[in-house]
Structures are given as C-alpha cells and as structure tokens.
C-alpha cells in the first residue's frame, strides 16, 4: 500500500520509452505489427496505481504520441484516456484475474483503443487498411505477459524503496 508516495518520474520515463519504441522502424512487413507499447504501459499503471496514474497521465501520453507520430492532435489522447478510464473503473476486478484472463481483457482494451482511433480516422475522412489496424493489438496480446512481468518487477522495487524511506 505504498504506491501513494512512490515517485512518479519512473512512470513518465517508461511512457517516453514506450513512445520511442513505437517510433522504432521494424524491418519490412513487420512494421505493421509493432505492439502498442504506450497503450500497454498506460493500462499497466492505471491498473496498478489507479489513484496516481490515470486519465490525465494517459491523456498527456496520448498527446505526446500524437505529436511524435504526426496523427491528428488529440486522437491518441482520446483513445488512451477512454482506455485508462475503463481500467480505472474495473481495476479491482481485473487485478484478481488470473494472468490469461487479464491478458484477454487487455487484448479487448487494445482492440477498443485501435477501434476508437479507426473511428476518429473515419470521421476525419481517411480510414484505411481495415483489418491491419488491429494487428498491433494481437502482437500486444502476445507480449503482454512479458511486459507485465518486467513492469511488475520495477514497480515492486519502486514501492519497496519508498517504504524503506518513510
């Protein structure tokens, strides 16, 4: 229960790293399969530290992604804040899910996030590549357990360090 005072800058560092990972060019046809790192990191922290990392953080991270990727300003911001709201809403249920069930829930959230962006693009008049848009969510589904293990470790370290000092 020490999440309340743990420093927030590591979370921001992770979000920056995630945004950079999304910009990393993957070879050839793989580039369309790059997992939505930022969305996954946002989901993780909204799940684990819901009182601290929530809609506002998600919105800012989305805005960063919009600037970096040159998409419509506010597009990722909207989709990520809606996603983080859902996580916030159901975090108590989601936390007691077994890993496979949590992974499936995250997959659904990633699909929803991709769908929101597709929808916005549709309204703005440039919807394209229909099904390929959901490919990153599938890759996200595959890397989620790994990412979660990695982030769990750093979160535990953060919380432990904090409790040592207070």
């Amino acid at each position: 229960m020490s999440a309340r005072h743990a420093p927030l800058w590591p979370v921001w560092l992770m979000l920056l790293l995630a945004a950079m990972l999304e910009l990393l060019p993957l070879p050839g046809g793989l580039s369309r399969l790059g997992p939505p790192w930022t969305a996954m990191v946002v989901i993780y922290w909204a799940l684990m530290w819901p009182g601290r990392v929530a809609i506002g953080t998600a919105w800012l991270a989305g805005l960063l992604l919009d600037v970096l990727q040159g998409s419509l300003l506010g597009q990722h911001a909207l989709s990520l804040s809606v996603t983080s709201y859902l996580v916030l809403r159901f975090h108590l249920q989601m936390r007691i899910f077994p890993l496979w069930q949590l992974t499936m829930t995250v997959f659904c959230l990633l699909l929803l996030e991709a769908f929101l962006r597709l929808w916005i693009d549709g309204v703005a008049g440039d919807a394209r590549a229909g099904l390929m848009r959901f490919a990153p969510a599938v890759t996200g589904l595959m890397v989620w357990p790994l990412l979660m293990a990695l982030l769990d470790r750093s979160r535990e370290r953060l919380e432990r360090r904090e409790s040592r000092f207070t």
Binding site: I55, W59, L73, G74, Q75, A77, L78, S81, V82
Partner: peptide, 12 residues
C-alpha cells in the same frame, strides 16, 4: 474523462 474527451475532440 468527459472533460478530456471533449477537449480532445475540440483539438482534433
């Protein structure tokens, strides 16, 4: 959420 969504839409 509602505020931020409205703000995002305005931005877009």
């Amino acid at each position: 959420l509602i505020l931020l969504v409205a703000f995002s839409i305005a931005l877009m």
